[in-house]
Design a binder for these strands. Structure first.
Lengths: 212, 212
DNA sequence: GTTTAATTTAAACGCATGTTTAAATCAGAG
DNA sequence: CTCTGATTTAAACATGCGTTTAAATTAAAC
């Protein structure tokens, strides 16, 4: 194949689709390069290793999403004391903006995040927290302030429950939307799923702590 | 190594621990057989294949848990119209009973379920639904009856959100309890985590559907 | 004790993986 | 055109995987 300056992009595009669909370790470099119509060795030439390719795929989305999400949050807090629903909902626009960057960008990004948290051998978790930890902390702080009746330790657990919901839902979003279409004739796109999950999460995070 | 009639059990014990910790496809038969101190080929001799070993590992827990959970549910519905909280709470006793069968049995079982749910290449989903589908349907039906204001399609999604929460929480329960102990001086066992998550789940599942 | 079936063992098979190599090809500068 | 550095290419490498094989060993029946 002739020299082509977009080899890196072709690899990233093919990789992100396959990673989102089947997970990282279940996707071989040979499958990626055959879909991208590039040579097998070009992955190692351009990215060094499979791990670095995974990070590059995620970074392409995180570099767009994280600053946008932070901006939305700043804007939201400037005008009012936002509710939990508003805080979660402030993520919707930055998420949907990813569809302008790439077709199915929102779904791909969320699925990649889910795969990353589930499969994480540590290198991804480290990569995300060291590169985007500041943005994450801002978000956690805003959530805590919006539900002051929840003690910090309880909030810690509930935010991780929330993370679990999001991650699992997105990792299996394709299968679930298929089942929903077959069983209930409900045809959901990724935005519909996002808008379904937000009230569920907000209710759980804010529910009063029972002593019992 | 001498002939030993408990080879099957040694394999199951080693396999369930490793499967729960690292997932199915990330756990090789060579790792299992070395931890179990049995010959590599004995897995194929006793179980036929890796897939059948996975099913056998899960069946050992499901055969205990599912009937017990069904019994609890029948008992609960006999005396009253149970609330969502009561229905979820009815699972606690069957779950904790698994600790009598094996040390850390509850945690292992929940982690295995989580791994099976994400990694599922179909054979596990098929195995669970064909062998334990009746029990699952009873539970789903009870949940739906306790929240009649939630349409079936919405309930489908919320139950999967719930599954995601449980599965992710249990998969990372070790790390989370450690962090909670360090940051908040909270010392939780698996039962404490289960009792924290139930109100969160019940609130999310039952929250009224907003039209917006 | 001998025979028979079940089990364990070491070795190999076939295949897929990520990575590396060295030659071939390309694009741009002089 | 010629040279140079970047890129692409085909091939091989080393490793790990699930599985199979055939011989060795064990336990039980007679």
């Amino acid at each position: 194949m002739a020299n082509r300056s977009d080899t890196k992009t072709r690899i990233l595009d093919a990789a992100e689709k396959l990673f989102a669909e089947r997970g990282f370790s279940e996707t071989s470099l040979r499958l990626i390069t055959s879909k991208a119509e590039v040579n097998l060795a070009s992955v190692n030439y351009h990215f060094g290793s499979k791990k670095e390719l995974i990070r590059a795929v995620l970074a392409r989305y995180l570099d767009r999403f994280m600053p946008a999400a932070s901006d939305e949050l700043v804007q939201l807090k400037a005008s009012s004391e936002p509710s939990l629903n508003e805080i979660f909902s402030s993520l919707v626009k930055p998420l949907l903006e990813l569809n302008k960057f790439k077709a199915e960008g929102t779904r791909t990004f969320l699925q990649l995040l889910g795969r990353g948290y589930i499969e994480s051998q540590g290198h991804l978790r480290w990569f995300i927290t060291t590169h985007y930890g500041t943005h994450l902390n801002e978000f956690v702080k805003a959530v805590a302030e919006s539900a002051p009746h929840i003690p910090p330790a309880e909030m810690f657990w509930r935010l991780h429950f929330t993370l679990g919901t999001v991650v699992f839902t997105m990792a299996s979003a394709d299968a679930l939307t298929e089942i929903a279409a077959a069983d209930f004739n409900e045809h959901n796109d990724i935005e519909a799923v996002i808008r379904k999950v937000i009230p569920y999460l907000a209710a759980g995070v804010a529910v009063p702590v029972t002593s019992q």
